[in-house]
Design a protein around this nucleic acid. Structure first.
Lengths: 204, 204
DNA sequence: AGAATGAAATGAACATCGTTCAATAAATAT
DNA sequence: ATATTTATTGAACGATGTTCATTTCATTCT
């Protein structure tokens, strides 16, 4: 039993990423095991390692596609030029995406690579794209060229947002916070932006 | 070989939590395995399950102690009554604690219980204590009684802070952000507080 | 056509892991 | 001294990710 050539290497890659995505979508990343994926694609466990260095490589591939979809969703948001509604729109898009893809989202942000593995550079660059999209919100404040201040602003806001949603996911927030993540996130957006405008105003 | 009675149940609990804490401190939570811990305390793997329902129970116990130390550190901060320096002091304490206990911190905030397990109520109550300590910062703004607004404020700020440090830990921030987590955290503290004061000011 | 080559696919094997539980031995009660 | 209780064990179970010698097919060469 060998050398079937039912699929090319590229087809096999596609097949496995698609199957992995489906498993994660339905059962979460804990459901993704080598034997389970092998059964799903009709190959043996060993074959996975002909295509990916290890399971982390597969997860990187799945996450990469999720990131692509997120970038796409972000880029579809028109900027009005007024920071408040633009930030709100970005926020709503972010929260909606997370709500519609909870398990894929967890794989994206709650999963740590095994010891010794690192996110590849092209993967991190993709996250950079996400920030570039988001940074458009601050153009009215900092101008069209990204500056140190505008980068700090978007990174801080996004990290803050990530904190709210990740604590909500882990269940920590639920018992400590009386409000929904969405409420907290909107509050953060409004308040943080107000603070930015206050700091960037002529008086100071 | 059985029934040694070298230690009482309580002593055994103490022994195991201490050993687990040491292992986590040095090698992180991945280093904590049943056989490894058993060897460290001089008992068999099975004995762990006479004291704890499973390894998650042990991790809860270790985290609980870390939380106690954090609450203690928080309560040692004197409040001046001016939000800006008070929030800065709280922030510095938080960041210093994390820096001094990186692996214990990860066990506290980066670890998810296995499927089916939940953080016990008394554990979540301890996290509530932490918030109560932090909420003191906003007394000058919202008054001595916790209100919906003051709770939203501290939860949002803390979640935001958590987001910055957790992204930094996972390595995501490093490649995307040009600034250190401390810089972003201080920026968040200043800006968010400015936003709060602007929103709470008479004009609006 | 037939033999040689090369690559794709396998699946048993290895070293782990958390957890269980019948067996055992020591402490205690009778 | 005997019986009872109970703490402790460690082998066993079913998982896990990963490896790699072996197998088998498709291709190429003669």
């Amino acid at each position: 039993m060998a050398r079937r050539s039912d699929h090319s290497r590229d087809q096999l890659f596609e097949l496995m990423v698609a199957a992995a995505q489906e498993i994660i979508t339905e059962e979460g990343i804990e459901g993704l095991t080598a034997r389970r994926l092998a059964a799903a694609v009709g190959y043996s466990p060993g074959s996975i390692y002909n295509v990916f260095r290890n399971l982390d490589g597969l997860i990187v591939a799945v996450n990469s596609r999720t990131l692509d979809r997120l970038v796409e969703a972000f880029s579809a948001i028109p900027m009005t030029g007024t920071p408040e509604p633009d930030l709100a729109a970005l926020l709503d898009c972010y929260l909606a995406f997370e709500e519609q893809n909870p398990k894929l989202w967890s794989a994206l942000f709650d999963y740590d690579l095994r010891e010794g593995e690192d996110w590849p550079d092209w993967y991190l660059a993709k996250i950079g794209q996400l920030f570039a999209m988001a940074e458009r919100v601050f153009v009215p404040i900092y101008g069209p060229q990204p500056t140190r201040q505008s980068r700090i602003a978007i990174q801080t806001f996004w990290a803050g947002l990530h904190g709210i949603t990740s604590l909500a996911r882990s269940g920590t927030l639920k018992t400590v916070a009386s409000e929904t993540p969405t409420t907290l996130a909107r509050h953060l957006a409004r308040t943080y932006l107000a603070g930015l405008l206050a700091s960037a105003s002529p008086e100071q």
